[in-house]
Nucleic acid binder design. Structure first.
Length: 233
DNA sequence: TCTAATGATTGGTG
DNA sequence: CACCAATCATTAGA
């Protein structure tokens, strides 16, 4: 008798054909062993292989989480977006920040990482599409900050780019720029790190290269235009 | 039912 | 190992 464990985790136990002495007149079973082995050996192997294959397929199917994707809760996306847009110049949450976000949103840390990975890519790829969202969350966090500190500081109400020379393209696609409150959001474009985050132009963070634009200026000149055409699917 | 949005996975890079 | 880019598979909205 032998036992082996294959890659499916199955225990293939073979006790059937070995050392069977009973039955036919008390003769040793060697003869029948040979016959049966010869007849069914290959079938046995085939069966085993196909079964194993099926198991592997099923396993991969059920273990593939993409097949049971759930959208995050409102709360989760809210929290994540808030962080993302209030750290637009450097949207790379630390491990602790990730844990914090995960806790607040009721998701796992790796889900937070996934989300930020996706968000960075997709934001960079098509900033125009996210302007409205950006304004909303930037305004929100700006309002929060204002409420937290001094209510009547800042917020002149005038629309001015922090560094006009730097922003070589600022959106004719102002479609989403509707309300005065949103002006507050513009105050956030100057990040404490001193790195310029043009809310309405392409990324120009050169310095250390990780969060800089991929989109060429021409690609976002048209409000509805979708240069890359998303290309997925 | 088609399509856009979106969370997760994969493969490649440094 | 974290990140990016592409892609997959599902969900939600038209």
């Amino acid at each position: 008798m032998w036992v082996l464990v294959d890659k499916c985790g199955f225990w293939w136990i073979n006790v059937i054909f070995l050392g069977w002495n009973g039955g036919f007149g008390g003769k040793p079973g060697y003869f029948w062993e040979g016959v049966i082995h010869g007849k069914f050996g290959s079938i046995q192997v085939q069966l085993k292989q196909s079964t194993c294959e099926a198991v592997m397929i099923l396993r991969s199917r059920f273990l593939d989480a993409r097949r049971k994707r759930r959208n995050f809760s409102k709360q989760a996306t809210e929290v994540l977006n808030e962080y993302f847009y209030s750290h637009l110049s450097n949207p790379y949450p630390s491990e602790e920040a990730k844990e914090e976000l995960a806790k607040k949103g009721g998701i796992t840390v790796s889900q937070v990482s996934n989300w930020f990975g996706n968000k960075r890519i997709r934001y960079k790829k098509n900033m125009g599409k996210f302007q409205e969202e950006a304004n909303i969350y930037a305004a929100k966090s700006a309002a929060d900050a204002a409420a937290a500190s001094s209510p009547n500081s800042a917020s002149s109400g005038s629309f001015q780019m922090p560094n006009p020379g730097d922003s070589f393209l600022n959106l004719q696609s102002l479609t989403s720029y509707q309300s005065p409150q949103n002006v507050d959001s513009l105050h956030r474009v100057l990040h404490p790190t001193g790195r310029f985050q043009p809310l309405f132009s392409t990324q120009r963070l050169d310095a250390n290269g990780s969060w800089q634009d991929a989109a060429t200026p021409s690609s976002i000149t048209s409000p509805t235009g979708d240069p890359g055409s998303d290309a997925s699917n």
